[in-house]
Amino acid sequence: MPRTIHLTVNGHKHELAVEDNLTLASLLRHHLGLTGTKTGCEEGHCGSCTVLVNGSPLYSCLLLATAVDGQAITTIEGLAVDGKLHPLQQAFLDEEALQCGYCSPGIILNAKALLDKNPHPTEDEIRYSLSGNLCRCGLYQRIVRAVTNAAHSMAAKGAR
């Protein structure tokens, strides 16, 4: 039996009838068309499906939609404001910290959660925080640099 849940996704309120076994990842991708959230493994190992739930980075493939009833979700589509890229997105472009881009949405969201909590992380803190997000193109060094640079530009602008 479908259950009705209420979600705020990227600032928009949704009332949705969902099956008990529907994951948050499937809900976002298939019901709301937010395919920026990727699913590399659907078993909680690769991190590509990372979204923010009330600001915390979580693997959306492991979460049931019914378990996040009433919560606020941020996906990669919700980061840019009025067409202006988030400093992290801009830093990933400036450093070219991606190749195929499949892991990037999850990594950028995880990095946002890190910077929101810890605006000036060390390299070790960045590596530790992002170690649950696999990048097979292997651009980890660039990702560290992009997150570091974004932290600086966010601090300079007082932005979050």
Partner: peptide
């Protein structure tokens, strides 16, 4: 020269095969 394919990849707009409908 900056990569032309990257902006769509950092905003979630890029469509991979599993994203198409």
């Amino acid at each position: 020269v900056p990569r032309v394919d990257l902006p769509a990849k950092v905003t979630g707009k890029a469509l991979y095969a599993a994203d198409m409908k």
